[in-house]
Simulated assay, not measured.
Amino acid sequence: MKVKKDEKRGTWYFVVEAGKDEKGKRKQIFKRGFKTEAEAKREMRKVAMQVDENTYVKPTKRTLADFFPEWLQSKSLKLRKHTLEVYTGHVNKHIIPKLGRFELIKITTAQIEKFYIDLAKDAQLSPRTILDIHKIVKSAFEAAVKRKYVPHNPVKDAETPKVEKKEMKVWGVLEANQFLKVAKEHRLYPAFLLALTTGMRQSEILGLRWKDIDFENETLSVRQTLSHDGKELTAQTKTKTSTRTISLDQRVLEVLQKHKRNTMKEMLAIRPVYQNNDLVICTGFGTPILPRNLLRTFYNLIKKADVPKIRFHDLRHTVATLMLQEDINPKIVKEILGHSDVRITLDIYSHVLPSVHKETAKKYGNMLFNQSNSSQ
């Protein structure tokens, strides 16, 4: 490690030993063009420390436009098809046009924050969409740090828009029962029954197979999902914890058994043209139900039942809310819903917890003091 003067140019440079490469050849880092010896020494100490800590990044002209296709390709190994399409859309429509020409190593936190402001003003994107884009850019830079393209992640400390939490819309027990009562005669009744008894996602319900239901042990396993466009069945759930086993009520099992018998009759009636995908919820020809068709039926039944209009996904929120109100352990609710962490469950349904805690305190107090009174 040494600093020397370039007599011809009148500037200073330094050399830092950087170990050996994979072939055992000596590696050195040269940096030139410093105006003073002190300036060269400061930079040399900085580089030497980075070499020791294995954080040194060799300068490169690689731009965001160069890096993002590489990153998306690596993410394709983990992400579901729909999620990858969403990521690719944001990258091509918003990230590359605004930031693509800049070198990775020169991107600053301030520049990222200005990018978010521009997305809000010029593109008029919602805070939620900007936050989604922030997560993509942050994840990409984390990968760039791991690959030694940049020394740190400038997105990590960037300020993001505040996303106002929407008031969660859920049904009470009476409303849920009223809806199920009206939906009972519809062919898709088992789909809505599963939604309101298990909290399964729409994609999970539409991907459920008969072989995933264990009638003897009264359980079903979530192992397959249907894509958002209804064109692809995949043995891939939203997250690792989304692959789960859920216990079923005996009354739900009875509905499913009856539905299975009806499905078998449909298959036998048109056997030559029937497409047997082993799906629990399917068309009369055995093909997957398109999500938009399920939603159309759902909203029509809501009107008939004269209950508040909510989204299909809110049936999942309804299940969780009703379970927590019944003082069911949040950890159990987390496992039923397939959340990766109980903190997610507690955060989403924090509005329910004060009343749950109050009721728990009352129940515990009654148990404790009634016991004390009886022993006197």
Rank of each mutant, 00 (worst) to 15 (best):
Leu77Gly: 03
Pro330Cys: 12
Ala183Met: 07
Asn277Glu: 14
Ala140Thr: 02
Met1Trp: 06
Leu253Thr: 02
Asp341Pro: 04
Lys135Ile: 09
Lys148Arg: 12
Gly33Phe: 12
Val352Tyr: 08
Thr198Asn: 13
Asn153Asp: 05
Gly199Lys: 00
Lys334Ala: 15
Leu104Gly: 04
Pro308Glu: 12
Gln178Trp: 06
Glu232Pro: 11
Met44Lys: 05
Ala361Thr: 11
Val16Arg: 03
Ile105Asn: 06
Leu315Ser: 09
Val15Glu: 10
His134Ser: 04
Gln73Pro: 01
Leu233Ala: 03
Ile130Pro: 01
Asp229Gln: 02
His339Gln: 06
Lys258Met: 05
Asp21Met: 05
Lys181Met: 08
Gly100Trp: 04
Glu164Asp: 15
Glu266Asp: 15
His186Arg: 13
Val137Gln: 07
Lys46Asn: 14
Lys25Trp: 00
Asn177Ala: 10
Thr297Pro: 01
Leu208Phe: 01
Glu326Thr: 10
Tyr299Cys: 08
Glu164Ala: 12
Asn293Phe: 13
Arg311Glu: 11
Met367Asp: 02
Gly89Val: 04
Ile344Asn: 04
Phe102Gln: 12
Asp327His: 14
Leu256Trp: 06
Phe285Arg: 15
Lys148Pro: 03
Phe102Trp: 07
Glu159Asp: 12
Glu232Thr: 15
Ser374Tyr: 09
Lys358Gln: 13
Gln250Asp: 11
Asn329Ala: 09
Lys309Val: 13
Lys309His: 12
Pro272Glu: 09
Leu324Thr: 11
Lys303Arg: 15
His313Pro: 04
Gln325Cys: 10
Gln73Val: 02
Val255Asp: 04
Tyr364Lys: 14
His357Thr: 15
Gln50Met: 08
Arg261Asn: 15
Thr287Ser: 08
Cys282Ala: 15
Gln325Arg: 15
Val91Tyr: 05
Thr237Cys: 00
Phe30Glu: 01
Ser74Trp: 01
Ala18Cys: 10
Arg187Tyr: 09
Leu104Tyr: 00
His82Ser: 10
Lys331Met: 09
Leu131Arg: 11
Asp212Tyr: 00
Asp118Ala: 02
Pro272Met: 12
Ala40Tyr: 11
Trp12Val: 03
Leu322Gln: 14
Val352Leu: 08
Glu175Pro: 02
Tyr13His: 07
Lys4Cys: 11
Asn300Pro: 04
Leu279Asp: 03
Val150Glu: 05
Leu324Tyr: 01
Leu315Val: 04
Gln124His: 05
Asn373Gly: 11
Met44Phe: 03
Tyr56Ala: 07
Arg42Leu: 14
Gln376Gly: 13
Thr219Ile: 11
Leu301Cys: 06
His259Tyr: 10
Leu206Cys: 06
Ser375Val: 13
Ile328Cys: 13
Thr225Pro: 04
Ala269His: 13
Glu335Val: 09
Ile302Lys: 13
Asn300Tyr: 09
Lys121Glu: 14
Thr55Met: 05
Asn293Ala: 14
Leu64Thr: 08
Tyr87Ala: 01
Leu180Met: 08
His186Thr: 13
Ser355Lys: 15
Ile344Trp: 08
Lys162Glu: 11
Leu188Gln: 06
Lys331Glu: 10
Thr83Ala: 01
Leu279Gln: 05
Gln178Asn: 13
Arg101Asn: 08
Lys106Val: 01
Ile302Pro: 03
Arg80Pro: 06
Ala191Val: 09
Leu346Trp: 06
Gln111Ser: 15
Leu346Asn: 04
Thr239Trp: 00
His186Pro: 07
Leu125His: 02
Glu70Met: 09
Gly24Leu: 03
Pro354Ile: 01
Arg26His: 03
Phe115Asp: 00
Lys184Phe: 14
Ile336Ser: 08
